[in-house]
Design a protein around this nucleic acid. Sequence first.
RNA 1: CAAGCAGGCUGUCUUAUCGAUUUGUGCAAACAAAUAGGAAAGUCCGGACACCAUAGAGAGGCAUAGCGGAUAACAUCCGUCGAUCGUUUUAAACGAUUAGGACAAGUGCAACAGAAAGCAAGUACAGUUAGGCUGUAGUGAAACCAGGUAAACUCUAUGCGGUGCAAUGUUACGUAUAUUGGAGUUUGAGAGCUUCUCGCUCGAUUUCAAGGGGUAAACAGAUAGAGUUAUUUAGUAAUAAAUAACCUAGAUAAAUGAUAAGAAACCAUUUUGGUUACAGAAUCCGGCUUAUAGGCCUGCUUUUUUA
Length: 124
Amino acid sequence: MKNTFSKHEKLKSRKAIEALFGDGKYLKAFPIRLVYLHQKTFEKETFQVGFSVSKRNFKRAVDRNRIKRLMREAYRLNKNLLTSEVKKQHIAMFIYSGKTLPTFIEVQDKTRHLLKAFNKKLEG
RNA sequence: CAAGCAGGCUGUCUUAUCGAUUUGUGCAAACAAAUAGGAAAGUCCGGACACCAUAGAGAGGCAUAGCGGAUAACAUCCGUCGAUCGUUUUAAACGAUUAGGACAAGUGCAACAGAAAGCAAGUACAGUUAGGCUGUAGUGAAACCAGGUAAACUCUAUGCGGUGCAAUGUUACGUAUAUUGGAGUUUGAGAGCUUCUCGCUCGAUUUCAAGGGGUAAACAGAUAGAGUUAUUUAGUAAUAAAUAACCUAGAUAAAUGAUAAGAAACCAUUUUGGUUACAGAAUCCGGCUUAUAGGCCUGCUUUUUUA
């Protein structure tokens, strides 16, 4: 599996995102949270993921961009941890809830942790 | 020479691996090219563009304010006059700052002093003398007079219609009965995006025929432009014109990145360590304002050294 992350893997639909925040379930690994939602109507070719940082915690757009890019990079490099095929019936979003700028190592550790936990849930 | 302050310019680089967006080539795999700023920010002004009447009239409101010019336009920019401040013994000169029309329409305001800075009132002396009027004195920057004050109301002149790209248009999906056209009836509630009035447009209802609310799903709008660079000419300048070359982000829960190594600059310093700012396009331009490590340039102030 290639470590790519292109446009069609990104969660874009506003409706889907609203539903995700309304009814989604949470997995936590501070300072990152994973929100996911199971819904058959969402089934597509690929598993779609989004990334988000609160404007309240990071006032400057530069910092928000930086964190989103770090999270995206961490997901891109580790997404092969998600082996379950059931994932295609899900959508998910990573939310950074910390208040300080993280390093890439930290973000990658937490992302791996979350992906493993999420994979377990999907299989079990 | 050093430090501080102010203004201007600039605002890290290279390689490797793994990626993102757009475009091009290709059946595909893939390959190639381009990819954030001087402020992209604040959203404070001015335009372009789109729709709302063809953007109309009056009131109200807002903005601007010596003179001349630049510009698509401006509250911006350039030149110049005046005023104020600094250098200076003074003048001149130089530098800096400057919302700088009108107080001979009306209203308001004016510390201290003073009887009084305007619903008027009135001290002393002198002149004349019936009242009263006139003059002088006293306070003050200014005392009845074209007094001062308009970043006080106000007046004058000039300008400004409103809403904003989630504008607006097309396509796709597809259900109420919105919308459109014809005919009849009804003269009146409401709507047309800032406040009011007028004006203009649409109206209400019945019937027949045609036809699609909504969904920010896709595409267009959207990036070749008041464009960038260089040279020449005109002009004190802002700027304009001509010629040549170039194409230089176009995303949409939002690409422009991540990791590693090295170099460079600066700081402290024994190795060595640390720092590399402010900050991220969102329809597009012209300005203003604010934020900025380090480097370079200019001016001012202070200190020290030498002559």
